Simulated scan of single mutants.
Amino acid sequence: MTSTTTPVAWKRMRNWAFATGLALSGVALSACGSSSDDAGSDSSTTAAASSSTDTSTGSDALADLTKPLDAYPVPTDAVDAKALSGKTIYYIPISQQAPQFSITAKGLTAAAAKVGAKVQVCDGKGTPTDIGACVGQATSAKAAAIIVDAIPYGLAANGLDAAQKAGIPVIVGNNIPDEAHPASKTLAYVGPEAGGDMEKALARFVIADSDGKANLLINADTDGPSPLAWVKEGQQIFDDECPDCKVATNNVSSANFNLVVPSTSSALLKDPNITYVQSQYEQFLQPTQTAIQQASRTGIKVLDGAAGIASVKAVEAGTLVATAGQASTYQGWVYLDAVARLTAGSAVPDYTIPVRLFTKDTLGDTKVTEAAQDSGEWFGPTTFTDDFAKLWGVA
């Protein structure tokens, strides 16, 4: 199926994503979509549209995206986090297959230790059953807070509702806010823009690298409505800035990880003119590359998102032409800050999670090491940890 993406269509997509989060999540986590010809896959070809709402476009935006920040956007209002001392916070990522969540867990654990708290990680394993079990375990353990990462609220609504009724604050990370479950005194959403920012960064790289002639296949994650909505944000950049680019999507999911290779191979065989392949997230990169080999395709440029050390090393080695990542260590500290504020009954700010584009030409003096990744220095000065400690009254 081929469709044209326009600004109006994107707005409808965003509204649809809010309204049908639970329904889409259930389908995404159980669907068996493989090739681009079946119900589990879809493709869309971009066309020229009206101007972007971004304040900067093209090469200026691309240059800014490749640099670390001068300072992290740490909140300025203090909050007493001493009440968390001796408590346990549950962190539930949708799947520990994704390296990004391991980085965030390390950051959250370090932040929790700063206030005398502990972190219990429970793997959602990409299934509603395991996610529900993790939430139930956290509630039974009377956790100080529950943080679900990349898990739509609707996928564990009953359990998260019960947790809040029991007085346990809930943080939902890396998801577009669910209108049926708005932020409240016991619920906060953190980092909903980062996924879209990564897609827009990769889109701008492909446009520049291809001189506006790219034929791109995106392996788009269907683990909930948010990743697909973020892919649409990237497609909007192509609509606005590259009318001669062609973009198609192939749906993949954590629950059907074994289908990534055959579905990608099928999409590549269907369109022999594809010149770029993007794995939306790093956990799907290896099977994506395997599929390219199985399809006997050469000359294809590969890129991915949610970058960890493996992806940045691949960029350094030339295996990937680009990768985009969000400041996952910083996000762990942001999660602790949100927990502290909900616990104290304080207002939770709108946090910004920085995103950076990594290319071989722009790595510069970036230290491509696990230590540098975990410190957060890829995205800005590591003094943010001291800044948070001062805000929490534990410096």
Rank of each mutant, 00 (worst) to 15 (best):
M1A: 15
A19D: 14
T20N: 15
G21V: 04
G21Y: 02
L22Q: 14
L22M: 06
A23P: 00
V27R: 07
L29A: 10
S30P: 02
S30L: 10
A31M: 13
D38L: 10
A39I: 05
G40N: 06
S43K: 08
S44P: 00
A49Y: 05
S51H: 11
T55R: 12
T57P: 00
D60H: 06
L65A: 15
L69F: 05
D70M: 05
P73V: 04
V74F: 09
P75M: 10
A78M: 08
A78F: 04
K82W: 02
Y90L: 09
S95E: 10
F101D: 07
A105G: 06
A105K: 09
G107R: 06
A112F: 07
A117M: 05
Q120H: 07
P128K: 08
V135F: 01
A138S: 07
T139G: 01
K142W: 01
A145D: 04
I147S: 06
P152V: 10
G154D: 04
L155R: 04
A157R: 12
A157Q: 14
G159K: 02
L160Y: 07
N174A: 15
I176H: 09
P177T: 10
D178N: 15
H181G: 02
S184Q: 06
V190P: 03
V190Q: 02
D197N: 12
L202D: 03
R204L: 01
S210F: 06
K213V: 00
K213E: 11
L216M: 11
L217N: 03
I218H: 03
P225C: 01
A229Q: 12
W230T: 06
V231F: 05
I237H: 02
E241N: 09
K246P: 00
N250K: 10
N251R: 13
V252H: 02
S253F: 05
N258A: 15
V260R: 01
T264A: 08
T264N: 09
S265I: 07
S265G: 08
S265W: 00
L268G: 01
V277Q: 09
Q289A: 10
A291N: 08
I292D: 09
Q293I: 13
Q294L: 15
A295V: 11
A295C: 11
S296P: 02
L303C: 04
G305T: 07
I309N: 11
A310Q: 13
S311H: 04
V315Q: 05
E316L: 12
G318V: 02
V321Q: 10
V321K: 08
S328L: 12
T329A: 14
G332I: 08
V334C: 10
Y335F: 15
A338R: 06
V339G: 08
A344I: 12
A344F: 14
A344C: 10
A347W: 05
V348L: 13
P349A: 11
L357E: 11
F358H: 09
T359G: 10
K360D: 11
L363V: 12
E370H: 01
Q373H: 03
G376N: 07
E377G: 05
W378C: 03
T382K: 03
D386V: 00
D386I: 00
D387H: 09
F388R: 03
F388L: 03
W392T: 00
A395M: 02
A395I: 03
